[in-house]
Structures are given as C-alpha cells and as structure tokens.
C-alpha cells in the first residue's frame, strides 16, 4: 500500500514517514501531498508564536488538555531552531507535552527549522497538509522562539496566538509594527508572576490608538504550568474561528495562504537552482573561482542565474 493510502487509513507510522520525506525535501513528498490534497482543508489551523521561553509549548500542552476534553483530535507541529554551524538541533518542545504522549488523539511532531527563516521550517506547510489529510480536527503550529518580525505563522494559520510575558515592553513596544499586528489573540502567560495586568492595559491602550478592527483581538491572561486560563484561551480561539467562518474572511485568508505557499515554493526552487549553479561546474561558478575577492557584481550574477542576463 502506498504511504498516502496508509496515512488515510490512520497508520501513524505512514504519517510520520511522510513528514520525514517532506522535511528532507524529498520529491516523493510532493507526490504524496498532491495525492492527499482532496482530503485537506477541513482542519482549524492554530498558530502559537512568541519569544523564547514565553511558555508556548506549555500553553500547547494546556490547550491539548482542553481540546481533548471536547473530543476533538489534534496534530501538533513544534518547530525549534537548528544550529547554523552544524545543522544539528535539540528539539525540546515535546518534553512539555508528555501527558499526551499515549493519547491516540494527539500526534506531536518536532521539527528543526533547518536554516529556514521566519519562525517555521521549510516543510511546515506540507506537514500541515499531511496532518489535515490524516483527519486531525485541530492543527497547532508552534513556531521557534521569535522576535519582532518572524511573521510567517500569520500566513500559514487561520488563528494566530501571540504569547507574551509580563513586563515585555512599554507602551512604545506595543504600537510597533510587526508581530503585534499579526495576533488574532494575545496571551500574557506567566500571569502568576505579577505585572500581567499592566501589560494587558498597555496592549489595550495601543489598540485604542487605531481604528476599531472588525475583529478586536482579545487579551487573555494564562499561567500554563498551573493549568490556568486554558479553557478561556480555547474559547477565544473557537470564537475567532466562528468569526472567520461567518463572513470574517476565512476564504480570503486561505487564498492569501495559497499565494504565499506558491511564492515559497518558487523561492525555494529558484534558490536550489541558483545554489547548484553557484557550486557546480558552471560558467558562473568558474568565474567566481577566478575572482576569489568577491568583486563581481551580485546583481548581474543573480540576473544571469535567473536566466535574465542583460
């Protein structure tokens, strides 16, 4: 039986193997995802993003508890950084979600970012499609710990949750462009530490400076490791889903997502081709070797590699 067929029958190993093919950028993954595409589009995609150590994985663990109580199945994709020196990684998100390891309704996959920027791994979209085809009701995507401008999650998910911690900046931080703009829901985690109310007010004030949006992102307080705030967070995520589905732009989001996915594939393909030309036995590579000082014109080289030599 093909991997795709086994996956559709609920074979967890087939799902895991298909994910590895996507991660390794194996051409077979493209075929599998294409074959499974008719079975996708049903899951609610929830993104969890925020700074390193803000408690994203612990919040996912808390959400899993709440979602499973409601009988829905979940797939989790948790991305952690890869070493820029060796390509290796220590993936430590799963460790926060231990209590769900033996629950057949929860599938957790750790991914190394493998040099991909933007907070996700290059294969994240494929993995979402695979989990969707596998029949998961909810797919949670946890980004690497991010800063202000790793925004890819906003183009990948239906609902983006931004996890902050108390004292994470003054009023100017909260009106800056970037990550604060992509949040559909704000969470101030570690609220038991104090200062969370102040952070909530700052975000609220910042939002009041602009025109009222059709969806006003709620600001929730949680303490993930104390199991506090999970139900309220899940309710907010469901409200956002209802809003999107009932004329709030779900179709538009999905169209934008498709465009982004196509752009990402084009960029990846172009980069691969260019890299091969730069490192292979090609006229460009030979010229580069003859000019070890790196004084050639990068614009001309790029145009040449893209077949647009002037």
């Amino acid at each position: 039986m093909s991997l795709a067929a086994s996956l559709l029958q609920g074979d967890v190993r087939a799902l895991a193997k298909a994910i590895s093919l996507a991660e390794d950028r194996d051409p077979e993954a493209t075929q599998i995802v294409t074959e499974l595409q008719p079975q996708t589009g049903r899951a609610h995609l929830v993104g969890i993003t925020g700074a390193p150590g803000s408690g994203k994985s612990s919040l996912v663990d808390l959400l899993l508890q709440v979602i499973r109580q409601r009988g829905k199945t979940v797939g989790v994709v948790a991305v952690d950084p890869s070493s820029p020196f060796t390509g290796g990684a220590v993936l430590g998100d799963r460790i926060r979600m231990q209590r769900h390891t033996l629950d057949k309704g929860v599938f957790i996959r750790s991914m190394g970012a493998r040099g991909h920027l933007g907070g996700l791994a290059a294969a994240t979209r494929e993995v979402i499609h695979l989990l969707d085809a596998y029949g998961r009701d909810v797919i949670i995507v946890e980004t690497v710990g991010v800063g202000q401008s790793e925004l890819e999650i906003g183009t990948v998910c239906d609902t983006t949750v931004l996890v902050l911690v108390p004292e994470s900046g003054d009023a100017v931080q909260s009106i800056k462009a970037g990550i604060m703009e992509i949040a559909d829901i704000f969470v101030i985690n570690k609220a038991d530490l104090g200062g969370a109310e102040k952070t909530r007010r700052l975000i609220q004030d910042a939002m009041a400076l602009g025109p009222a949006p059709a969806w006003a992102p709620p600001i929730l307080l949680t303490a993930a490791i104390k199991d506090q705030g999970g139900v309220e967070l899940w309710q907010a995520i469901e409200r956002h889903w209802e809003y999107l589905s009932q004329g709030g732009g779900l179709q538009d989001r999905r169209l934008q997502r498709l465009k982004q996915e196509v752009l990402a594939l084009v960029a990846e393909q172009a980069r691969d081709d260019a890299r091969q030309q730069l490192e292979g036995d090609t006229p460009v590579a030979r010229r580069l070797r003859q000019n070890p000082n790196g004084t050639l014109n990068p614009y001309a080289l790029a145009a040449e590699l893209m077949g647009r030599a002037r």
């Binding site: 890869s82 070493s83 060796t86 390509g87 290796g88 990684a89 220590v90 993936l91 430590g92 799963r94 460790i95 231990q98 750790s110 190394g112």
Partner: peptide, 13 residues
C-alpha cells in the same frame, strides 16, 4: 554532542 555533530535530537527527558 549529537547536536554538535549535526544530528536532530528530540530530547524527551
């Protein structure tokens, strides 16, 4: 050490 050797390590603890 495995990380430094380029391996993806999933640490379950």
């Amino acid at each position: 050490a495995l990380r430094d050797a380029g391996v993806e390590v999933i640490y379950a603890g």
